[in-house]
Write a protein that binds this DNA or RNA. Structure first.
Lengths: 227, 227
DNA sequence: TAGATTGTTAATCGATTAACAATC
DNA sequence: TAGATTGTTAATCGATTAACAATC
C-alpha cells in the first residue's frame, strides 16, 4: 500500500490563509484534473506553475499552507493531490445550493453542468413570479420566495446564489442569511452588506468587460489582466 | 462655468497600474451611480471607502493614479467622478462585443441588460449548431462560427466572450484573437493560453462556489471572501 | 477663522520569489 | 551516486495604510 501524504488541520497553522491562495487552489485543481485526463500520473510545482503562469515557489508555498503533499525528487501524484485539494476546499462532499431568481441568467445557471462536477447541487430555486412558481427546471423545483426560509432550513442549505435584479438583491441576501446560509454568490451589480460571519463572492459581468476595455485602451501600461 | 478637474494621461505616470486598482475603479463607479441616484451631489474618500469596505487612503490613492479629481475640504462631485472613471475605464464610448457559443449561458448573457448600461453592445453571436445559426436572439444575429473572422474584422470588434464547452474554448479564443480581438472573457472552465498582447478575464462559476465552501468549512480561519 | 478633506510621502504590512538543505 | 524536486527560510518586492501639509 502506498504511503499517504500528511495534511495538517488549518487550526495548527500560522495565521489565516490569504484569499488569493484559496483562489489558486481552485486553479490547481482544475489543472490537475486536466493533467490526469491527459494521462499524467505525477506533476511538479514547476510544471503546474508553468501551466498557470505562476512560479514553482508559489505553487509549493500555496500547497504547504495545508500540508506536505509532495515527494522530494518526484513531485506530486495528481490523483492524490486532487483528493487533498478537494478535501481542503470542502468539495469532497456534496453541497446543496439554493438559487434565488429564475430569470434568464438563473435558468441558464440551473442548466450549467459545471456545478455538479464539483459536487454542488442546486436543490431549490425561488422566485416571486406566479408564472414560474410550481414549475420545475432541469429537475429543480421552483418555490415562491415566501417558502425560502422553510426550505433552506429544512434542507440545511449553506450556500446561496442571488440572481435577482439589483434592487431586490439585498433583501434576498438578508433572507438567505436569516435562514442559515453561510456563503452567497451575488450576480446582481450591487454591493451587498452582510454579517461578517457570512462569506460573499460577487460576480459582476459588466465589471469583467470594464477590466478589458481599460486594458485595451491602455494597452501596454498595465500588467496583463490574467485569469 | 465650473472648473474641471485635471486628469493625467497614464503615460505620464510612474509605472503600471495594478490590476487590483482597476478592479476597484469599477466598484467605485458602481457605487457612485447609486449615490447619484440616491440624490448625493458629492461624496468623500471615507464615505466611498466605508460603502465598499476600503480605507479612505486607498480610495484617494487609487484615484490619484489617474489625476486630481477631488476638491480639498469638499470631496468628490459624483457626476464629475463618474465621468472621469468612465473615461479611464474606456466606457465613455460604445464597445461592440462578439459572443461565441449560444447555449444556455450564452442565451442568458445575450439577454443581460447590465452590459448595455456600461456601453457594451453584443453585436454578433456565433455557434456551430445549424439549428441556431441564422436565428436572432434579443436582436443579436447568430452566425456560423465560420463567419467569425469576417464579421469581427468588418465590425472592428475588439472584445469577445467565450461561452462554449471547455474542449472548444481554446480554439475559439484563437480564432477571436486572429480576427483582431484584444480582450477576451472566458466562461469555460479551462486555462486559455493567448498572446500577452491580449487581455484575458476568466469567469469560472464553479470556482466561485469553491471559494465559499472553503470559507464555510474553515469558518474563522480565513479573511472573509469579500466582493 | 475652524472644520473638512484632498493628494502625497513615508512607514507598515503582506505576499511573492530566490535560495538551499533535506530527501528520494 | 547524480539528478530532480520538495518544504521552508530569508530576501525582495509591491501594495496598503497612516500621517500631514496644502487647500477650500
Amino acid at each position: 500500500m502506498m504511503s499517504q501524504p500528511k495534511s495538517k488541520t488549518l487550526s495548527d497553522s500560522e495565521g489565516p490563509v490569504p484569499k488569493a491562495v484559496v483562489n489558486r487552489l481552485s486553479l490547481y485543481l482544475r489543472e490537475l484534473h486536466r493533467l490526469l485526463r491527459d494521462g499524467h500520473q505525477t506533476t511538479s510545482s514547476s510544471h503546474l506553475g508553468n501551466l498557470l503562469g505562476f512560479t514553482d515557489a508559489q505553487v509549493r508555498k500555496d500547497l504547504a499552507y495545508f500540508g506536505h503533499f509532495g515527494y522530494p525528487g518526484i513531485g506530486y501524484r495528481c490523483q492524490e493531490l486532487i483528493d487533498a485539494v478537494r478535501r481542503i476546499l470542502g468539495t469532497d462532499r456534496i453541497w446543496p445550493v439554493a438559487m434565488v431568481g429564475v430569470g434568464n441568467l438563473g435558468r441558464a445557471l440551473l442548466g450549467y453542468k459545471g456545478f455538479g462536477l464539483q459536487n454542488f447541487r442546486i436543490v431549490a430555486a425561488f422566485d416571486v413570479d406566479p408564472g414560474r412558481v410550481g414549475e420545475s427546471i432541469e429537475g429543480v423545483p421552483i418555490y415562491h420566495l415566501d417558502k425560502l426560509t422553510e426550505v433552506v432550513r429544512q434542507q440545511r442549505i449553506k450556500l446561496g446564489m442571488v440572481v435577482v435584479p439589483a434592487t431586490a438583491a439585498q433583501g434576498v441576501a438578508d433572507k438567505l442569511v436569516a435562514a442559515g446560509v453561510e456563503g452567497v454568490v451575488n450576480f446582481a451589480p450591487v454591493t451587498l452588506v452582510l454579517p461578517e460571519t457570512v462569506s460573499l463572492v460577487g460576480v459582476d459581468l459588466a465589471m469583467e468587460l470594464e477590466q478589458l476595455s481599460f486594458a485595451v485602451v491602455n494597452r501596454g501600461e498595465t500588467g496583463s489582466a490574467d485569469e
